[in-house]
């Protein structure tokens, strides 16, 4: 018994000694721990205001609790249906069109002979990633305006000019199209890197077997980069409701609200412009919960199918 206690004590002291020994390492972690605490954990705690009638002067401690009142009033809000529908449609359509694009580009680039041409093409394909959202939307307003170059051609070819940036039915096309332009090259880096890791012997033996180029892509390249694709897909599904708000805020106007108003912009308008902190936090929380559930479900399905999973 006595020895037992002694061992326990000594274990404890050993642990304390270790912690003391690691003092410098704790010190190194401290700035990040503090910043994350202030800018991630404090706002997470602030989310409690979604269940309150938050009054800034009273703070989260002093405000009255109202339970699910704000969630219920969001579900009853006449805008609720439209906003949720817009968010989901925008997210799903983005996923359908934006997700495969860099994979296809990577497969195409992989077919080019290594050399200067390929390098130049790759460099150019990354460029849009480095152009700011403000400039992209500004140029879209120019190029797709009624007197812009696109409509110039449409009219020349006998069509009727379309005000792309104002029509609600064009909003998603414009948003997704510019998103692909912006991100496709840069996102292809990851897939190209995965492709370059494939064992070349696989291709050599396939060629000996007389496999065509197309068959090599289907039977070797795609299966080999599947792990990367599934991880990226899980992330993409998790982010399906988190659209690029910076861009939407620049693109949306009352003319195209019908399709461009999404949860994020609604939260921005109600919360930050309108000062309805509790209500907008509730709407934001509603979105985060759905996003997390989506991520979790996709991860689960991916694991069931025997593919990569996050956790």
């Amino acid at each position: 018994m006595k020895t037992d206690i002694k061992i326990k004590e000594s274990k404890k002291t050993v642990f304390i000694k270790k912690v003391k020994h690691d003092g410098v390492l704790y010190l190194m972690a401290l700035p990040a721990v503090i910043l994350i605490f202030v800018f991630c954990y404090v706002p997470m705690y602030g989310v409690l205001m979604a269940f309150q009638n938050y009054i800034p002067a009273k703070g989260v401690f002093g405000s009255d609790w109202v339970g699910l009142k704000h969630f219920i009033s969001f579900l009853r809000d006449p805008f609720c249906g439209r906003i949720v529908r817009n968010t989901i449609l925008l997210g799903v359509e983005s996923l359908v069109f934006s997700f495969p694009a860099p994979i296809i580009l990577a497969l195409l680039l992989n077919e080019l002979k290594a050399g200067k041409f390929k390098r130049v093409v790759q460099t150019i394909s990354y460029m849009p990633h480095f152009v700011s959202t403000v400039i992209i939307v500004g140029l879209m307003l120019e190029i797709f305006s009624l007197s812009g170059i696109v409509n110039d051609w449409i009219v020349k070819l006998g069509g009727e000019a379309i005000s792309f940036m104002e029509r609600p039915e064009w909003f998603r096309t414009m948003y997704i199209g510019s998103g692909i332009w912006q991100g496709v090259g840069f996102s292809s880096i990851l897939y190209l890197a995965a492709i370059s890791g494939i064992n070349p012997e696989l291709y050599e033996s396939a060629i000996l077997d007389g496999a065509s180029r197309w068959k090599q892509v289907i039977h070797i390249t795609l299966p080999c980069i599947m792990p990367t694709i599934s991880i990226m897909f899980i992330f993409a599904v998790g982010g399906i409701l988190g659209n690029d708000m910076q861009k939407i805020l620049l693109m949306y106007s009352e003319a195209n609200w019908e399709t461009s108003d999404v949860i994020n912009t609604y939260v921005y308008r109600k919360g930050l412009l309108g000062g309805q902190y509790s209500y907008s936090s509730a709407v934001g929380l509603f979105m985060s919960v759905i996003s997390f559930v989506l991520l979790w479900i996709t991860n689960k399905i991916s694991r069931k199918l025997g593919a990569e999973s996050l956790f």
């Binding site: 642990f15 270790k18 912690v19 690691d22 390492l25 704790y26 972690a29 990040a32 721990v33 994350i36 202030v38 800018f39 991630c40 954990y41 404090v42 706002p43 997470m44 705690y45 602030g46 989310v47 205001m49 800034p56 994020n264 939260v267 921005y268 919360g271 930050l272 902190y277 907008s280 936090s281 934001g284 929380l285 979105m287 985060s288 997390f292 991520l295």
Partner: peptide, 30 residues
């Protein structure tokens, strides 16, 4: 550093923030 005693705790502390966030309004108020 693999012998660092606080490694696990701090890693979990960080990873949580990759999946949950307070959102725009609480961050703004902070």
């Amino acid at each position: 550093i693999s012998t660092f005693t606080g490694r696990k705790v701090i890693t979990v502390y960080l990873v949580i923030t990759m999946f949950f966030s307070g959102g725009m309004v609480p961050l703004y108020l902070t």
